[in-house]
Amino acid sequence: MILFLFVLAGFLAACAANCRRGTANQYGNISSVRGLWLPVAGLLAELPFSYLPAFAGKVPWLFTGLSYLCIIMFLILNRRRAAGAILAGAGTLCNLLVILCNNFRMPVSPLALAMFPGMTPEAVYAKKANYFVATHGARFYFLGDIIPVRIPYVGSFISVGDILLGLGITAFIFSVLTETLSPSRSPSAE
Rank of each mutant, 00 (worst) to 15 (best):
T170V: 01
L62H: 12
V176Y: 04
F172N: 02
L177G: 06
A82C: 06
M1R: 11
F140K: 03
N103L: 04
L12H: 01
E179K: 13
S184Q: 15
G10I: 03
L111V: 00
A134M: 09
G65K: 09
F55M: 11
S156A: 11
A112H: 10
A45N: 03
S182W: 13
N18E: 15
I151S: 07
P121C: 04
F172V: 05
A83V: 10
A189P: 04
I86R: 01
P53R: 13
S50V: 12
A82P: 00
L52I: 04
L43Y: 11
A14R: 05
M115P: 02
T178H: 06
L8H: 00
E190Y: 12
P121F: 02
N18P: 00
I163H: 01
A9N: 04
I71T: 09
A134C: 11
C101T: 12
T170Q: 05
E179C: 07
H136Y: 06
L38P: 07
A82L: 13
A14N: 02
Y141W: 10
C15V: 14
G10P: 03
V124D: 08
G65L: 07
T92L: 08
L62W: 11
G84L: 02
A129F: 09
M106D: 06
F140H: 06
P148T: 05
M1A: 14
E122D: 15
P117A: 03
A90R: 01
I2K: 06
A54Y: 09
Y125D: 09
H136A: 15
L12C: 08
F4Y: 13
C101D: 09
Y68E: 09
W37K: 12
H136D: 15
A129T: 09
R79M: 10
C70T: 05
V133W: 03
I158A: 09
M106V: 07
